Computed example of a mutant assay.
Amino acid sequence: MIKAIFFDIDGTLVSFQTHKIPENTFDTLKQLQKKGIKLFIATGRGKDGLDVLKDFPFDGYITLNGQYCYTKEKIIYENTIQSQDLKALLDYLEQKPFPCGFTEEHTKYFNLRDERVDEIHRITHNDDHPAGDCSQVVHQKIYQCMCFVNENEEKEILKVMPHCISARWHPLFCDISPLGGTKQHGIDEFLKYYHINLEETMAFGDGGNDIPMLKHVAISIAMGNANDEVKTVADYVTDDVEHDGITKALKHFQLL
């Protein structure tokens, strides 16, 4: 019996076409809660990017790919990048500049912006943050860095940030996060908090950063718009959110 379901946001709950959660998806979420199933967000977005949820009362939020997990009442888990890794990244940016977003608890800011940042904002409607001097980040609680680099550059950055890992759902950028925090770890924190077994879990996702989560839960669903790698690890592939993919999957597994 499924007691907890974890949802990615972009490309899963939120349509890349309308940048909204369809009303019928909200109706489906309400039906699940009436059945007593706990619902969780598991996203790369930070707290400042959750307006798209329209204040729907989820039972918990795994944000920043697992670095900041909380309920409406309390923080369940948080994990920040070590200052020495942030200093190394700043030094790297001086030698090889590229757009980089630094995420704090309630906001994000960039060292610089270019067409790559604007392109991602057109997709997410969540990356219109300002650019400027970021030297102060070594003294701040930074949960995640959004680095607009290709995969080869990503590997070079990780060499100078040895206490970090990366995740990518778009070819234009990767998220650099501290070791220890992942969507998978966030799931475990909430299962412990709510006394739910891993065998009672389900998750929906579409991006590369969802793969550890999809491999971890009991039942994993890839959205129809997911890439082949995500679809391969999932137990079931549904339609995209514009075509009621979440509801169709839940009916397939007889949860509705």
Rank of each mutant, 00 (worst) to 15 (best):
S135E: 14
T18V: 07
A131R: 07
I196Q: 11
H170S: 06
D175K: 04
N65H: 03
N24T: 07
G36H: 02
K215F: 03
E104Y: 00
E73M: 05
P162E: 07
H19Q: 12
Y68H: 15
I41E: 03
T124M: 06
D91K: 06
H163L: 02
Y236P: 09
Q82V: 07
T103E: 14
V230T: 07
D206S: 07
K251A: 13
T63R: 01
K35L: 09
I221D: 06
F173G: 00
G46Q: 02
T25H: 03
P97T: 13
G11E: 11
P57E: 08
M146K: 04
N150W: 06
H106I: 03
F98Q: 13
I221W: 11
I219S: 09
K54Q: 15
E23D: 15
F26Y: 15
K231F: 05
L64G: 03
T107A: 14
V230S: 04
I2H: 04
H125Q: 14
R122K: 15
R45A: 05
L53I: 14
L112Q: 13
V138L: 00
N79C: 11
E104G: 14
E78N: 07
G245I: 12
D240P: 02
P130W: 11
K96P: 00
N65M: 06
C174A: 13
K38V: 04
A222K: 14
Q33S: 13
T25M: 07
A42E: 12
K38M: 13
L32V: 10
K248Q: 15
E23Q: 15
H121L: 02
K72G: 01
F110K: 03
G101L: 08
L64S: 07
N225W: 04
K215E: 15
P130F: 12
P178K: 01
K72P: 00
G208V: 08
D127W: 11
I196W: 09
V237M: 09
G101Q: 10
I246M: 05
T182N: 08
T238S: 14
W169Y: 07
F110N: 08
N111C: 04
L89V: 04
V137F: 05
R122Q: 15
V230I: 10
C164I: 00
V14G: 03
V160N: 02
D133M: 01
D128V: 04
T71K: 05
P162T: 08
I142G: 07
F56L: 02
I37D: 03
K54E: 15
L90W: 01
V217Y: 02
I142D: 11
E104T: 15
T103P: 00
Q84N: 09
N150Y: 05
C164D: 04
Q84S: 13
D127T: 14
G36Y: 02
T28R: 07
V237E: 10
G49V: 06
